[in-house]
Design a protein around this nucleic acid. Sequence first.
DNA 1: GAATCGTGGAA
DNA 2: TTTCCAAGATT
Length: 382
Amino acid sequence: MTDRPTKQGRGRAAKARDTVDWTLPVDPDALRTTLLDWYDRHRRTLPWRASPGEHSDPYAVWLSEIMLQQTTVAAVKGYFERFLKRWPTVGDLAAADRDDVLNAWAGLGYYARARNLHRCAAVVADDHDGHFPSAVPDLKALPGVGDYTSAAIAAIAFDTPATVVDGNVERVITRLFALETPLPDAKPDIRIRTGRIAPDTAARRPGDFAQAMMDLGATVCTPRAPKCLLCPWRDACRAHAMGEEERFPLKKPKKPKPSRQCTAFWVTSGDHVLLERRPAKGLLGGMPGLFSTPWIDTDTQDMADDWQSHLPLSGNTRTLPGTTRHTFTHFHLETRVIVVSVKVVTDIENGFWIPLHHVEEAGLPTVFKKMAVHAVSKGSGT
DNA sequence: GAATCGTGGAA
DNA sequence: TTTCCAAGATT
């Protein structure tokens, strides 16, 4: 495979393509064929994966791909099956109440995905007659669908040639070529190299190839202790030849996580508890939670003990022993819980009351679920 | 381009 | 206990 002749007015990608240094002992077509053979022999059964030869439902593909963003297969399985059973079509999901969708998503994390999921379903139902578009640019225009997901849906659901690059592909490609450029700077190069190996026609099975690349990364070319003896690309892999598989991909150093702390309020009245509906945007946006003081940075702020002014309702208060801890993507949170007993159920802004025995179905994100468990276990002494 | 945005499992 | 990381998107 040779580089194309130079043309005028090329973009950055085209320019980089000419400078790609292809130094593997085998050509792209051989790599693609070898990988597809491996996939046919090792294909995994997954809830969202069509059987060989069967047509996959674009709605199911889209739903699974959104859920799988930065999330493990094991964590997604149950959620995927519950969603598909409750909302069998994109029209059903579009017609669902937003809070019901958020409730069903609770615990899976990255809640902007759930908000975008519901918005996207509405767009597909309203603007696309209930059918997902098949072209990458049209898919990428949908809420929550970016570079990876648009390519994945096009390839897997419609067998359209598309360059699918996720974290698995990045790892496989950087090892195959022993790329010394750290992520994310290496992304454009990785995309170009992946595009060279990937199928360029529907007949060459773009969907299977994309899934094969990701399966290879997930089961063989793993971050730690890769199973190179089982790898179909073992003989071509430069990192393997160097004996330095685990050194790739290189990554830019990440910043340390700061710590924050807050005081949360477990407000009860009789057998009811008060929860907050959080603002629609930002951290845990749109989700239910406990009222609390602001989450203050531990390093820059003193242990501010001014929880009184943030008390949502006045009542008898009791500070529980101990704290709960939770780690988000970019900070740690330590929470002290104060039990507040109020005389009568009183409505307040952004607040809602639920029976205590329904807390488990309230759809609390994990950080709040920890606080609720703490309150119930430590606070039952009154 | 850097920050933001969850969670649970593995080492 | 801490760190890493998993089928990324958005701002």
